[in-house]
């Protein structure tokens, strides 16, 4: 994936941001983001809280309307139409749906619909959007639930499931629409630690099957194992990016070095180094 040449035309580039910025009022949250994601590439976005990871991911799906720059999904401009005189206007809803038809998104809070059973959650968009019959939608839903290991929960209600199971249902719901690109915003951050593994396992399988994925995560182990590329974001800018082995072993920016050091300190069971200020309890 990262060995492939970066082709800017054709269909190698699945998702691309060019000089993209986003402001909330006066507050610039993303500055001049350029990022290009190729078919079957797995990109992990890391960075401190508030650095703009969610905003970046949401802008890539046009859940936030970015201000400057462009986002292209398989070569098509996302969210805006070029109007007369070079100005651009926000796309009509039908156009927006069309451009992001091959894009799936998984959220930190799962966002299942609690008034529908697990299977109905997966079937809904198949019936309404893809116009499948109930029977066909049901069949496809069960097949997809099988993939995430939850076919036996098809008729359960979402709020009777564990967080890990709910997130797997959310992944199945997205997957059933056969997306070409999947975006994940901290998919395991709302989970109890013992449930994180089952969700990461499903995502790992997806990566192995060649899904193009952009994953905002704090799971550095996952990033190290699965990502083709890790992108470090700080203060709304891409500070550094590269293969995980290189980035984690020899970060070139002090900010990333600090970020990784903080992470290791938080996550080590036994601190074998003396505390920096020399005090002990």
């Amino acid at each position: 994936m990262s060995v492939l040449p970066l082709t800017k035309n054709g269909h190698e580039v699945m998702l691309e941001a060019r000089g993209m910025s986003k402001r909330f009022g006066e507050h610039t949250v993303l500055r001049d983001i350029s990022l290009s994601i190729q078919r079957s590439e797995v990109v992990c976005l890391i960075g401190p809280s508030g650095s703009g990871k969610s905003t970046l991911l949401r802008s890539l799906a046009f859940l936030e309307a970015y201000d400057d720059g462009e986002v292209f999904v398989e070569g098509e401009l996302l969210g805006y139409d070029r109007a007369q005189g070079g100005r651009r206007v926000i796309s009509r809803p039908a156009r927006l749906r069309e451009v992001r038809r091959n894009m799936g998104m998984v959220f930190q809070q799962f966002n299942l619909w609690p008034h529908m059973s697990v299977a109905e959650n997966v079937m809904e968009a198949l019936i309404r959007g893809r116009r499948l019959s109930r029977a066909k939608a049901r069949k496809l839903a069960l097949e997809t639930l099988e993939k995430v290991g939850l076919v036996d929960k098809a008729d359960a209600w979402p709020n009777r499931l564990s967080g890990g199971q709910q997130q797997r249902v959310a992944i199945a719901r997205s997957l059933a629409m056969s997306p070409a690109i999947m975006l994940f915003d901290e998919p395991t951050s709302a989970l109890d630690p013992e449930l994180v593994g089952e969700v990461l396992q499903v995502m790992k399988h997806l990566a192995e099957e060649g899904m193009t994925m952009v994953v905002v995560t704090h799971e550095m182990g996952f990033a190290a194992q699965v990502a083709d590329r890790v992108v470090f974001l700080d203060g709304g800018q891409i500070v550094e990016q590269g293969a995980p082995a290189k980035l984690f072993r020899e970060p070139s920016s002090p900010r990333l070095a600090q970020f990784l050091k903080n992470y290791l300190e938080r996550n080590s069971l036994f601190d074998d180094r003396p505390a920096a200020n020399g005090t002990c309890l």
């Binding site: 992001r100 959220f107 966002n111 809904e124 959007g129 997205s174």
Partner: peptide, 23 residues
Amino acid sequence: IPQGQIEAAQMLGLTSRQIVCRV
């Protein structure tokens, strides 16, 4: 209704009318 449920529906390609009526 939590905004996240609506965003999930949007990302699955449901129209605003379908979101109002179904979600």
